[in-house]
Every structure is written in C-alpha cells, then in structure tokens.
Design a protein around this nucleic acid. Structure first.
Lengths: 134, 134
DNA sequence: CCTTAAAATAGGAATGATTCCTATTTTATA
DNA sequence: TATAAAATAGGAATCATTCCTATTTTAAGG
C-alpha cells in the first residue's frame, strides 16, 4: 500500500469518485470541503504526480482547462470531445481500436497507451531516452 | 475565390506551407516577417475564424499551446502526440478508423469529423442546437 | 466618386490556467 | 532526537488566450 500525504489521498479519493472528467479547479473545490487549508498548488502538483505515475489521465481540451480521469479497473475507455460545447464522452474500447493502435504504431512508432485514447502515447525516441525537439 | 484581408491571406499561406503543426506564436512570428505591423490578436482571431470555418484544425495539447494544421487535399490524417516530449505525429486514416468512428457514434452520438482525429466531433445536442453543460 | 455601415485591425489590458518560488511543516531515517 | 528529504500553503509570476477600444479598411448604394 502506498503511504501518501492526506492531501494526496484526498485528491485520489475525489477523482476516483467522479466520472465526469473534473477540472483541477473542481477537484480543488471539493478537496477544500474536507480540508479548507489545502492549496491550489498542492492540487496541481498531485495531479501531475498522479498523471506521471499513470494513475490519472490528463485530457487536454481546446478553449478550456485540462480534465482528469482516474484510471481504474472500469472497462478501458476512450474519450471524445464535442468541439462545440466541450462535453466529454466516454466510449468503450473494442477490437477495432486495437487495430488502429497497431496501425498507428506501424506508421509512427508511437505506442498508444491503453489509457491514452484521445490519443496519446510514448514515442520511440522517448522510450530509448532521447529527447527530440518537435 | 475568397477575398480576405491581406493579414488573413498571409496567415493562411503560412499554415499551408508548414507541416509540423505550428503554434499561434510561431505563426505570429512568421507573419511578422512579411507584415511587421500585424498583431497577435489578429493571428488568434483568424485562427479561430479558420478553425470554425473548417479550413484549419486546432489541436489541444497538455502542457503547451494549441497547435494548428491546415486541412487540405493531402491524405486525411490523424494526430498522435507523445506525452513525454510533446511531439506530434501524423498518421494516415484507413478502414479501421472508419469502424472506430462508427462505433463511437453508436455509443455516444458524437459524430467524428474527418478532420477531427485526436478526437473531436459534434455531439447530438449541439447538432440540434441545444447547449448543455458538461 | 461620396457616405454610410459592416468587418477587420493594432495594441494593449484583462483573464484564466498553470507553474514557480519561498518559507514552513511533515515524514522518514539513522 | 537530529538530519535530510519530501510535501505543503500561499501567493507571485508566467504563459496562452481573449477581450476591449479606437482606428482603418472594405463593401454597397445612390
């Protein structure tokens, strides 16, 4: 079992319970209910920590703040965003998407992570530890 | 033929020539070479105009500014981003992705636009003119 | 061509999201 | 208990983007 700070535990709890891809601000707001002293920087720092660790997915959105989603044993799913209203939808993975991922890998060398639909991954040069400019 | 302002024409020219998904700032920088008086707000306003019109794709990226891509007769392609280095890769569409899109539509009612991989679309409620909160 | 209205612009202020900084507190370790 | 490492609160700073206002350009009609 991990032994985290109570702030971090609380942030994890909050994301685990929410199924609508909350923003950092919403997580901060909810965390404040339990712990009025918590700061925004703690929320951001922990969201980054958890994303890097792979427990949380960070979803970039044009014209809006990033959204977060806990990655758990729920059926693997991807995200679709409406460019008009910004609403996020989940969709379940199926066989097709595995083929698309294989295809993307063949074409680009980018390995799509299961949690990374909408669509993110780790590219070859990163995997071998080299940093390239874009 | 469209008859646009010289600033807008210049911005279109720039995006057409670039194949590496430039940022607004880069477009602004290049536009300034030709027209030193051009302003950032003009660049942003026109990028928005062109995105809304469907001539340009706007790609949201975590931890960085949006990227832009001209939508032309080049083979339809999607975008994959490396979450580590932020590099964007193109990948060509194939049959698989059509199935995925159909699938997403069946599950969510979101209609994926051909230019919208990475992955965006217009949802049902927007299509019928209603605005929902997320 | 003039006149008027609409659209687009430059420039910079304002906003919103996120990161960064510093001093303090908590936790882990020897 | 002393020491070092990690995490925190709070707020300043930064970055990308939008918004505002006064001015200029363009389009249309008479």
């Amino acid at each position: 079992m991990e032994n985290y700070s109570k702030q971090r535990e609380e942030i994890i709890d909050i994301i685990k319970k929410l199924y609508h891809h909350p923003t950092a601000e919403e997580i901060y707001f909810l965390a404040k209910q339990k712990d009025p002293a918590i700061s925004r920087s703690t929320v951001y720092r922990n969201l980054k920590f958890l994303s890097d660790k792979g427990d949380v997915m960070q979803i970039a959105v044009s014209n809006g703040p990033d959204r977060y989603d806990y990655i758990n044993e729920r059926k693997k799913h991807g995200h679709v965003i409406c460019t008009k209203c910004g609403k996020l939808y989940d969709f379940d993975y199926d066989l097709d998407i595995e083929q698309v991922k294989q295809n993307i890998f063949n074409q680009t060398g980018v390995e799509i992570l299961d949690d990374g639909i909408a669509i993110k991954g780790i590219c070859n040069s990163c995997k071998i530890g080299k940093k390239l400019e874009n």
